Simulated scan of single mutants.
Amino acid sequence: MLRRLVARGDIDQETRRVLGLFRSTALREGRTERRARLLADVRQVLVDGVEPNARVAALTALVSASGTLPQFHREIPWTSSVITRAKELERGDWGADVASAAVTRTVTATVVNSAIVAITVLPRGQAPE
């Protein structure tokens, strides 16, 4: 999945050296607007109350189940109503139960990063808070 996202230009990979010894790969937002579009769809569902299609509901449920939703506070306010709506989708009939169980059972940094990398990379030039 990561290779396809890089090939499409949704994500850019950059190889770096850490402490001058270790190689590390950094992921950055690519040349497309995919991240912004996905976040806008998720925001409409969580903040504006728009009824999601199955794809957006599953994506929202996966992000919620993985515990990464709070990191999007700049784009999606972290309020009690957002949390409630995200948990509803996580428990709903959108395949979220399967996603939640899979995340709980197999979550590692690599798996979560691969599963939601399209919306979790930082915009260019911004450091994490």
Rank of each mutant, 00 (worst) to 15 (best):
R43D: 02
L46V: 00
I116A: 13
A99F: 13
E51Y: 05
Q71W: 11
I76P: 00
L46E: 02
G67E: 06
A118C: 08
A118W: 10
L5F: 04
D41A: 15
V121C: 07
A101T: 12
T60R: 05
I11D: 07
R4H: 08
L62Q: 06
S64C: 13
R124N: 09
M1W: 01
R35D: 03
G67Q: 07
A102R: 10
D93S: 13
N53R: 08
P52H: 04
R28E: 06
R17I: 03
L38C: 09
G125K: 03
P123V: 08
A96I: 06
L38A: 09
R17Y: 06
A99H: 13
S114N: 14
A115I: 07
V42G: 01
D93P: 06
T120I: 10
G9H: 02
R124V: 10
A96Y: 05
G67D: 05
V107G: 08
A115H: 05
P128L: 11
A26P: 00
T68G: 09
E90D: 12
L21S: 06
S114K: 12
G9T: 01
P77L: 07
T25C: 03
E129I: 10
E90C: 11
D10Y: 05
T84E: 15
G9C: 01
S24Y: 12
E129S: 13
A109F: 11
G30H: 01
V47T: 05
L69D: 02
L27M: 11
L59G: 03
A26M: 13
V18Y: 08
T84F: 10
L39T: 01
A102L: 12
I83R: 14
T79K: 06
I119T: 14
L27S: 08
S66N: 04
P128Q: 10
E51T: 14
P77H: 04
V47M: 03
V121E: 00
V107Q: 15
A58L: 15
M1N: 08
E14M: 08
R91A: 15
I76K: 03
R35A: 02
I116C: 14
S114A: 15
N113H: 12
A54M: 07
R28W: 08
Q13G: 02
G9K: 00
T104A: 15
A109T: 12
E129G: 15
S114F: 09
L122R: 15
V6S: 00
R74W: 04
V6T: 09
A61Q: 04
T110R: 12
N53D: 15
D12G: 06
R23H: 11
V82E: 05
T84W: 11
T15P: 03
L2E: 10
V98M: 10
V50M: 01
A99I: 08
M1R: 09
V117D: 10
V111C: 03
G67L: 05
T84Y: 12
E129K: 12
T68P: 00
I116N: 07
R91G: 08
E29I: 05
L89N: 05
T79W: 02
W94L: 02
I76D: 00
T120E: 05
A57F: 09
R43G: 01
Q126W: 14
A26W: 13
V63G: 01
R3M: 03
D93V: 09
R16C: 08
A57Q: 10
E129T: 11
